[in-house]
Nucleic acid binder design. Structure first.
Length: 546
RNA sequence: GGCCCGUUGGUGCAGAGGUAGUCACGCCGCACUUUCCAUGCGGAGACGCGGGUUCGAUUCCCGCACGGGUCACCA
C-alpha cells in the first residue's frame, strides 16, 4: 500500500483566497484522515507575477486557519526544494527527455504572430489550435532562432487520440482526439509553464492524490498526456466544485474592484463627483483611473481602491482569508464555513471541530454542484462560535483581531478587554466590540453626537432627555459602589420613583456617553467608562442644550 | 463559438422508481427588551422545460433551456 501524499500549491501573488483555502483544507483533511503527508509547494515560476513576501502571507493565512503541513518551503522535507523557482534542473531534465524522444518540439513564434493566427481562426469561426510542424526544429535551429532574436519556446506534442480521465467526484470524463492543443511547456525565458512544472513536481514529490478546483478539469488531459510521455504515474484526481458568490458569479479578487467601480460610476453619473475628484480621492493618476474605470483592474492597486470605497459608499467584500481575519471572524468559524462549501458530513450536523472534520472527511461526500459563498450564513456561524467560545479563547481572538486590524482597542489591558468582550455578548464579529464599545475607551472629546440620536432621545418632548440627564448627574456622582449590577439597580429604582420606563433614562445616558443610541447594557456601559468619565461626558452633553 | 461540468424552496444540503424532507442560513410574523446585537416560538417557500422507458418518474435515457468552467510564453 502506498502512503497517501497530497499537496496545496499556490502561487505567491498575494494573500490566500477563500477558494484556495478551501482547496488547501480539503487536501489537508484528506491527508490527516488517511495518515498521509500534506505538502505545501510554492508555484513561483512566473517571475514577473511573484509578489515579494506573498509566500509568507500565504503561510500565515494557512496557519491562522489551523492548517499545518508536513513538507514545505519552511519546514523542508525529502523532496526539497518546495519552491518551484529552485527546481529548474528537474524541469530542464524532463524537457531534455521530451525533446530527445520527439514528444516535444521547439517553436519560434512571436506573441504578435500567435495573436494574428488566433484572430484569423476566430474570423473563420474555427478553434485555434497550434499547427504542429511536420519536421521538428533541431537544437541547432533553436540556437539560430535565439541568435536571430526570436523567442524560443518548447511545445508538447499532444498525442492525437481521445482520452478519458477518471475523477473521483465527477466520474469518467472523456475528451475527443485533437481537443487538446500543443501547449507551451517551456517559456522563452527558460522557465517551465505551470502545466509542465506540476507534472514534474507531482511525480518527483510522489503525490498520489490531487484535489483541486474544477476550473482545472480541462487541464487534466494535458497533464495526463505528459505523465504518459514521461513515464510518470498518474495521481488520483478529484475536482472540487467551484466557489461562487451568492449571485452565482465566480468569486474572485476582481470583485473588490467591481464593487467599488460600480459605486464610483454611480457617483459620476449623479454628478456628485467628477473624474478628477475621484482620481484625487484615489490618489491615482487620472489616465490610469480612466483605464481602471474601464475595467482594467491592474491600473489601480488595492490601497487606491480602498481610498475610494468609503467616500463612494461601497463596502469592499472580503475575499481573502486575511480580509475575514481583519473583519473580525474567528478562524474556527471560517474554517467550518468553508468546509461546508461542497461537502457535508453524513449526518445532519454542520458545526464541526477540526478533529470532527478530519474524522468525517471523505471524498465521496464531496458534491458536484458549485457552492455559493453565503455571507449571511458565515456571519451567523461566526455569531454562534463567538457565543460558544470560552472567555480565554475570545480574549486571544480579540487580541489577534485588534492587532491585525490596527484597532485602538489593541492597547486595552487583558482585564478590560475581557470585560469589553463580556459586555458585547451576542456579537457577530470581533469588530462589533469596537463599533459598540470602542467609544468608551476613547478620550471624552472624541465623542461625536449623532444629530438624529440627539433629536430623538434628548430634544424630544421639550428636552425631556436633557432634563433627565441633569437630574441624573448628582445621583450618579454619588453612586457607590460602581459596578454594573449596582448601576443597573440604581437606574431601575429611578425608573420607579420617576414613573418612567427604562428607555427614558437609559437612552439619554447612552447618547450622552457614547454619542449614539448603541452601546452595551447601560450598567456595563457606564462601568466600563468609569464614573469620572461618565460624569464628565454627561456634563459635556448637557452643554449641547444651549 | 468548440470542449467540459452542473440544475431539489432565496442559499447550503437529504432523499427514494410510487408523486418530497430534516437541519442550518435568509425571509415574514410574534415574543423578550434600556439601544444595537443576540435569544425563543411560529410561518411561507422547491424537484428548469420537452420527449421517451415504465402501471407509475422529481429519481433512468435523450433533447432543449439556463447557469458555470475552460480555450495564454497565468497559475
Amino acid at each position: 500500500m502506498t502512503s497517501i501524499r497530497a499537496r496545496f500549491a499556490p502561487s505567491p501573488t498575494g494573500h490566500l483566497h477563500v477558494g484556495g483555502a478551501r482547496s488547501a483544507l480539503f487536501n489537508w483533511l484528506f491527508c490527516r484522515r488517511n495518515n498521509g503527508a500534506f505538502i505545501l509547494r510554492i508555484e513561483d515560476t512566473d517571475i514577473q507575477r511573484n509578489i515579494e513576501g506573498a509566500d509568507a502571507k500565504l503561510r500565515e493565512d494557512l496557519r491562522w486557519l489551523g492548517i499545518d503541513w508536513d513538507e514545505g518551503p519552511d519546514v523542508g522535507g525529502p523532496y526539497a526544494s518546495y519552491n518551484q523557482s529552485e527546481r529548474l534542473d528537474l524541469y530542464k531534465a524532463a524537457e531534455r527527455q521530451l525533446l530527445e524522444t520527439g514528444k516535444a518540439y521547439y517553436a519560434f513564434d512571436t506573441a504578435d504572430e500567435l495573436d494574428a493566427m488566433r484572430k484569423e481562426a476566430i474570423a473563420r469561426k474555427d478553434n485555434f489550435r497550434y499547427p504542429r510542424p511536420s519536421n521538428f526544429p533541431s537544437d541547432a535551429d533553436a540556437e539560430k532562432a535565439r541568435a536571430d532574436g526570436r523567442p524560443v519556446v518548447v511545445r508538447f506534442a499532444v498525442p492525437n487520440e481521445p482520452i478519458t480521465v477518471h475523477d473521483e467526484i465527477l466520474g469518467d470524463v472523456t475528451f475527443g482526439a485533437g481537443e487538446v492543443e500543443d501547449l507551451v511547456i517551456v517559456k522563452s525565458n527558460g522557465w517551465p509553464t505551470y502545466h509542465f512544472a506540476v507534472v514534474v513536481d507531482d511525480e518527483q514529490m510522489k503525490v498520489t492524490h490531487v484535489l483541486r478546483a474544477q476550473e482545472h478539469l480541462m487541464n487534466t488531459p494535458k497533464h495526463v498526456f505528459m505523465q504518459r510521455a514521461l513515464g510518470y504515474a498518474t495521481p488520483v484526481y478529484a475536482h472540487l466544485p467551484l466557489v461562487f458568490n451568492i449571485d452565482g458569479t465566480k468569486m474572485s479578487k476582481r470583485d473588490k474592484h467591481k464593487v467599488v467601480r460600480t459605486a464610483v460610476k454611480e457617483k459620476l453619473k449623479s454628478k456628485a463627483w467628477t473624474k478628477e475628484d475621484a482620481a484625487n480621492v484615489a490618489q491615482c493618476d487620472p489616465a490610469a483611473f480612466d483605464r481602471w474605470l474601464d475595467k482594467a483592474d491592474t491600473e489601480m492597486d488595492m490601497s487606491q481602491v480602498s481610498r475610494l470605497a468609503e467616500p463612494a459608499g461601497a463596502v469592499i467584500p472580503e475575499i481573502d482569508v486575511h480580509d475575514f481575519r481583519v473583519s473580525g471572524y474567528l478562524p474556527e468559524a471560517l474554517l467550518n464555513f468553508i468546509v461546508l462549501i461542497g461537502w457535508l458530513p453524513g449526518e445532519f450536523r454542520e458545526k464541526l471541530t477540526r478533529e470532527e472534520m478530519i474524522a468525517a472527511f471523505s471524498i465521496d461526500r464531496i458534491g458536484k454542484t458549485p457552492g455559493r459563498f453565503d455571507r449571511d450564513k458565515l456571519l451567523s456561524m461566526n455569531t454562534d462560535y463567538c457565543a460558544a467560545a470560552t472567555p480565554a479563547r475570545m480574549l486571544e481572538a480579540f487580541r489577534d483581531w485588534a492587532a491585525v486590524s490596527n484597532s485602538p482597542l489593541a492597547s486595552l489591558d487583558d482585564a478590560t478587554a475581557a470585560r469589553a468582550i463580556e459586555a458585547c455578548k451576542g456579537m457577530r464579529t470581533l469588530r462589533d466590540i469596537e463599533t459598540k464599545a470602542g467609544i468608551l475607551f476613547a478620550p471624552d472629546e472624541a465623542v461625536q453626537f449623532d444629530p438624529a440620536a440627539v433629536k430623538k432621545v434628548l430634544d424630544k418632548k421639550d428636552g425631556a432627555g436633557y432634563a433627565m440627564l441633569a437630574k441624573l448627574l448628582p445621583v450618579i456622582d454619588a453612586q457607590e459602589p460602581w459596578t454594573a449590577e449596582a448601576v443597573d439597580g440604581l437606574i431601575k429604582k429611578l425608573c420607579e420613583s420617576e414613573g418612567v420606563g427604562m428607555g427614558d433614562i437609559a437612552q439619554p445616558l447612552r447618547v450622552a456617553v457614547a454619542g449614539k443610541p448603541v452601546s452595551p447594557g447601560i450598567g456595563e456601559t457606564l462601568v466600563l467608562l468609569g464614573k469620572g468619565k461618565t460624569v464628565n461626558r454627561i456634563r459635556r452633553c448637557l452643554a449641547l442644550q444651549a
